[in-house]
Each structure stands twice: as C-alpha cells, then as structure tokens.
Design a protein around this nucleic acid. Sequence first.
DNA 1: CTTTGGAAG
DNA 2: CTTCGAAAG
Lengths: 322, 322
Amino acid sequence: FQRACVCASRLPPGNMSKRGKKNEEVADSDNGTGPAAKKGKKEAEPPILYEDPPDKLTSKDGRAAGLKITSWNVDGLRAWVKKKGLDWVREESPDVLCLQETKCAEKALPGEITSMPEYPHKYWAGSEDKEGYSGVAMLCKTEPINVTYGIGKEEHDKEGRVITAEFPNYFLVTAYVPNASRGLVRLDYRKTWDVDFRAYLSDLDKRKPLILCGDLNVAHQEIDLKNPKGNRKNAGFTPEEREGFTQLLDAGFVDSFRELYPDQAYAYTFWTYMMNARGKNVGWRLDYFVLSKALLPSLCDSKIRNTAMGSDHCPITLHMAV
Amino acid sequence: FQRACVCASRLPPGNMSKRGKKNEEVADSDNGTGPAAKKGKKEAEPPILYEDPPDKLTSKDGRAAGLKITSWNVDGLRAWVKKKGLDWVREESPDVLCLQETKCAEKALPGEITSMPEYPHKYWAGSEDKEGYSGVAMLCKTEPINVTYGIGKEEHDKEGRVITAEFPNYFLVTAYVPNASRGLVRLDYRKTWDVDFRAYLSDLDKRKPLILCGDLNVAHQEIDLKNPKGNRKNAGFTPEEREGFTQLLDAGFVDSFRELYPDQAYAYTFWTYMMNARGKNVGWRLDYFVLSKALLPSLCDSKIRNTAMGSDHCPITLHMAV
DNA sequence: CTTTGGAAG
DNA sequence: CTTCGAAAG
C-alpha cells in the first residue's frame, strides 16, 4: 500500500536532457543519469521516490510539540470530500486545517465538512466573481482571537486567496498564491501580488510572529522540482517567481522544510495529473510552511504527507512547540 | 435483474392531480388512482412498469422478418460506449444501427465504434457550429445505394440531425428532431422544422417507401407519456408538436408501435435522469419507427428495449419482412 | 488528466 | 441528473 523507496539520494538530480514536448510542465522521463539514459526511447527508469521520516515532536531546545497544523490544496473541495479526504484529516487530526483551491461557494459546501464537530470554528473565502475558482478555508479546534480575509488591497482580494487568523502567540496565514498560468499570461500580476503579499506579511510580523502556509505556487530552488532545467520558462519556476520567494525569506522568514532538510531532493507536494507524473514522482514542492524567524526555536517538524491521495497536491503538516 | 411487472393495465392513466413543482417535465408521483391517492404527502406507490412482449418475427401476411433496425438516442456517444452500450448492440445485432445525440465530432469517436467490423459502412453527421451538440449516426452491415445528410434546407442542416440511406426497396431516415427547449424558446423553430421535415419525407416517399426512425422529440397522445396533464405546456407535449406529428401521419405514414399496440400504456422510451424517473417509470415515448403506409404489410414487430441501459433513452428495434 | 460552472437535454 | 466543451490548473 505504501510507496516503497528508502534510500533517496540526498543530492539534486543531475543533467536534464532533451526536453521533448514543447513547454509542458513536467518532462516525462528526463532523469538522465546512469547507463539507462540512452539517446532513443524513454527507458522507464524506476522513479526515485521520497519517504517522509517519522514526525519529530520536540523542538531543538527540547520543548514538546503542542500545535499541529495541516495545509492541503484540495483541487476542488467537493471532489476531494468524495475521495475521502476528510477521512485522512480525521486520522491526522491537526489543530488547524488549512485548505486551498476549494472551488466551492460557501452555500454549496458538503454537509460532511460544514458539520464536522472536531472543528467548531470554520472560515471560508471564495472567489467573488467566478464561481468554482480559487477559494481557501481554515478550520480550527480552538477559536482564534480574530480572523480577517484578504491582504487589505482591493485588487487582490476578490479571488478568495488569503485567510489570516490571530492566535495569542502568533498569526496563522493560509494562502493560495495566484498561478502565473500557461504562457505566463498572469506573471505580471503575480509579481505585483508577490510585492503586496510580502508587504502584508511584513506588517503582520511587526505585530506578532506568523506562520504562513499554503500553495505558494513556486518551487524555490532546483532541488524543489524534478525537472528544473525544463521549467525555467514555465509558471512556478520562473526567475521572477523564485526571486519573489527569496525576497520573502530575506524579509525575515524561513522555509521550515528546507530549514530542517537542507539537502533533501525528490520531496514534492504537487504532481500534475498528466502523464502519470505522480507515479513517477515527477513533482514540485509548491506547498510550504513559512515561519517568522522568531518562531524558529519552536519548530519541531515540517512534514510532507505524500501518501495521502485525493488531489494533485498532497497535504503538509507542521509541528510547533508554542 | 429484469424489471418485474406483467399485467400493465391496457388503459391510459386516469386523473392526474396536483402538479406540484412548477413546470418540471415529469411529476414525481402523480399516478392518482386507487385508495393510496390521498391529499397529503406522496405515498410511494409501486410504479407501473412495462414489459415488452417477445419479438414477433413474421408479418401479418406470413412473411419472415429479414430486416432488423435498431434506433437509440445515446445522449453522448463517448459516455454511452463507456457504459457498455456497444455490448448491448452486439447482442442485439441489428442490420442497421441508428444513433442520435452522439455529441461527438467524427475525429473524436472512440476506436471501439469506428473499428467495429460488424458494421463496415458507417455514416456520421455532427453539429457544424457547436461541438458536442446533437449529431446522428448510421451503421450498416450492407452498403446503402446512396447516403445523404440533412433535409436539403440550409437553415436546418447545420446541426447534424438527419441521415438518409437509400436501399433497394426503401429509404431509411434517422432523425434527431430539435427539442423545443425549456420555456419553449425554440418552439417556433420547431414548427418550421416540422413543416420542412414533413415536406422532405413526403418527397422521398414519392420515390420509394421509407422508414423513419429516431428521437422525434414528441409524445403524440396522452397514452404516450406518464403525466400528460402536467406537460401540456412543456417541450415534447405541446399542442403544436403533437399536431406536427399528427400531420406527419396524415401525410401517409404510420406509427409502427401504436399500430401494433393501440392501447398499450406505460410504454416509454425516455425518462429524465432527474428524480429517479426511470425507476418509477415516469417516462415519455419519444422514439419511433414511422413507416410509409406501403410498408405496413411488411411490418413484423416494433419493440421497446426498455431494459437496456446507457442513456436516458432506451433503444427501439423494428422487424420488417422486406 | 482532473476539477469546476454553464448550456443543453 | 447527466452529457458535453471551456477555462483553469
């Protein structure tokens, strides 16, 4: 049942050759190492999988994890519910559940989730214009002090992309960052978003440290996707989007997974449904827990739950000793 | 497995009461006879089903059936193929198979049907403007003398609704007649169609007798649908559409099923997918084999294959001694 | 490849 | 309720 693979190399993949197709998001084979990498047909090399290690439940300074947050781009809440996503959530049982790409108006939400007693405090944001587009949600076991929607800029706040919850010791922000789209037709908008979103987070951070989670729609470095060479001109791995993420970190934030596992390759959170990408682990790390530096001492673990099915993204989970 | 019911009353249903809803196409219960027909909630009366009698394979004048034609509105050829519609067809094995609402461009046809060796002669007509709309097909074991598309009037021939095949002793016409639509927004067009289509058939009939089959999108008389009272203002049972069919018959044609079974109620070929209409046999007879009067002596049987699944219509089959 | 709402039935 | 193509990812 569980994917095999134990000894994933700790180094990023080597030379990526002959991109084939045109500008598709993932290359089909393109692992290009070893004797099987011949010129002709693709050789069906065994995929290099990634097995997330057991959860570490203490911080560096020895405090016990007391806060568990899960984030999942569900790619359509209703389909995801039908595919038993909520069963997995009940098993995982995080204190806070953050969802992206719900694609569902609040009035069309399935009863299975609106009636979930484990999470009495539920917050929904949907796209105001296009039904069934974008949308994020936050479900909490304990009630936040305050909850806000959007990032305070009219031009960004009509697509249901951000929910911010204030808790006593931190802000929790969940976000579904705009996709630059095929042909990068929305890259200019994305750059504006990145600037404004970073400003929003920096302002919050002045008041209280924050945890940002969600689908940030960028693979930061080459190690964060299977086929970096072939995707430099594709949405999610353009220099502009990568630079946006770098600038976010430079503003005083930390990529929790990369902080803990600086050299871990093949660890992805998204695989296109096309070309059996997930079966071959041809993926991207697009989903993150980003922390204010002040929260770093409380970080226990940052997990990638890549055996959980129900979407083209897998869930990620954060353990904090707060 | 097979639907029960043997003793369906030979009389049309009695008083239809309290229409409920607004102008939905089928009423939910509304059978309104017997002691269970009380004022309040619907009582879940057992549905009156219809079991088609065994095929009669000789004509009145004692000749053996030698031609078998099946007509089926498949409501989307690709979905119908996935639902094993072709398995049923292979079992039925008609000499000619006529399909309506294929909703499929010729280049998108599934290989399962384009490669079917039992039918070497295949003819396709699709909507020229809207992909995935309308469309009819005819598959033949033996090659027709000639095949034409449409009814020879520009204004009607862009939606892939008619194929005419000429055989030595008859024309075979398959048609998907335009639906008058919700709110009867296309009833005016339908009336024009009915006039022109009737003229087309009359012209053909002067040359050689014809068999017309397909989804004619009208229930002719009250006996031809479960809820006549409630549907007088709905597409498929307006006075105008019914009169169109009457005028067709007056032009020298015969409704083969009604000819053989003049009083058979509850015999339907279409049930809306909504409200479990098929399970309750709340249906309409919309699919017909209509014959030139000259072919009446050759009529053996006109069947309703209402156990065949895969569409919101069931197939119908004609046996002729030609 | 898969989700969604929209048109059509 | 179910089909389909479109937009989006």
